[in-house]
């Protein structure tokens, strides 16, 4: 018994000591970094809201332009989260399960949206889908406005947030043993049944977290949206572009209030997703 105990501690000890600095230093470093580069800016935003006073904040968030921009931002982000959740899983599935010519290239392309400045993304979309371009003109001819309309916002967001679901779901798919699927098949499960009761439950935490991440990233997207949306108040003006307008007009209070709302919403969602993923992981571990 004693020997086992010693063995266990011996197993664990070297890992925490393999870092060249002590635990306290590590914690201080990580905590300090988080404080300076993440928390302080957030506190500054919150402070300017408090400085602006609650009346300003309330007015800024409940004006008709603000309300419609929040609504537009939420529904476009929701559509994008669902579409990319589906297409991202599908893409990850194809990447993990099939080998095909150009596999490496496709794999590399998936990360590109993160690296391209979003302003460039916007310009790219205008060049590609603009009303004078073949694709945009075809849609316009059929009575559907692609750019400078909510559809344009969705196109931009789909592009910018594409990698999140793929990269989150991919490692989970790799980990699922072919054995489990084979076992399900041997027990007479159809392919659909196998997918629904074996693969989907395993995917769920990663899929949900990454969909929420997609959603929160979409909430804050500015660079590409400001170019393709049209930015018409109460029609195509999103919340981040509203914030930009408020800043440029010297309405710091309104800008901070809307920012804080977006930050709060994101924080809530990320927190919820994190909790869900942890609980789920615990349950899976307990099984």
């Amino acid at each position: 018994m004693t020997t086992t105990m010693t063995a266990t501690t011996a197993d664990v000890q070297p890992r925490s000591h393999s870092f060249p600095v002590g635990r306290a230093t590590l914690r201080a470093l990580a905590g300090g970094f988080l404080l300076v580069f993440v928390l302080l800016p957030l506190i500054a935003v919150a402070r300017s809201v408090v400085d602006g006073g609650w009346a300003t904040t309330w007015q800024a968030l409940t004006s008709r332009v603000a309300l419609s921009s929040i609504a537009l931002t939420l529904w476009t982000a929701a559509i994008v989260a669902v579409v990319n959740g589906f297409m991202g899983t599908l893409t990850a599935w194809v990447l993990v399960r099939y080998r095909f010519p150009g596999h490496a290239a496709v794999n590399a392309i998936i990360d590109l949206p993160i690296a391209i400045p979003t302003l460039v993304t916007g310009v790219m979309l205008v060049v590609l889908y603009g009303p004078q371009q073949p694709i945009g003109a075809w849609f316009a001819g059929h009575g559907f406005k692609l750019l400078f309309a909510p559809a344009g916002i969705i196109l931009a967001l789909l592009f910018v947030t594409f990698p999140f679901v793929v990269r989150a779901v991919e490692p989970v798919l790799m980990e699922i043993d072919a054995d489990q699927e084979e076992a399900a098949a041997t027990l007479g499960a159809s392919r659909r049944r196998t997918f629904v009761s074996v693969i989907l439950p395993a995917l769920a935490p990663a899929l949900l977290t990454s969909c929420l991440l997609t959603f929160t990233r979409a909430l804050g997207e500015f660079g590409s949206v400001v170019i393709v949306a049209g930015n018409i108040p109460r029609r195509t003006l999103t919340a981040p572009v509203y914030v930009f307008g408020a800043i440029e007009s010297g309405e710091t209070g309104a800008a901070s209030a809307m920012s804080l709302l977006l930050i709060g919403l994101s924080a809530l969602l990320i927190f919820a997703a994190d909790r869900y993923a942890r609980r789920r992981a615990l349950r899976m571990g307990a099984r």
Partner: peptide, 21 residues
């Protein structure tokens, strides 16, 4: 490619597009 190289290449590609904006 490693993930870092991939991202680097992507960034360079992005940067070459920048003058377009």
């Amino acid at each position: 490619w490693s993930s870092l190289e991939r991202r680097l290449a992507a960034f360079v590609f992005g940067a070459t597009l920048l003058p377009l904006s």
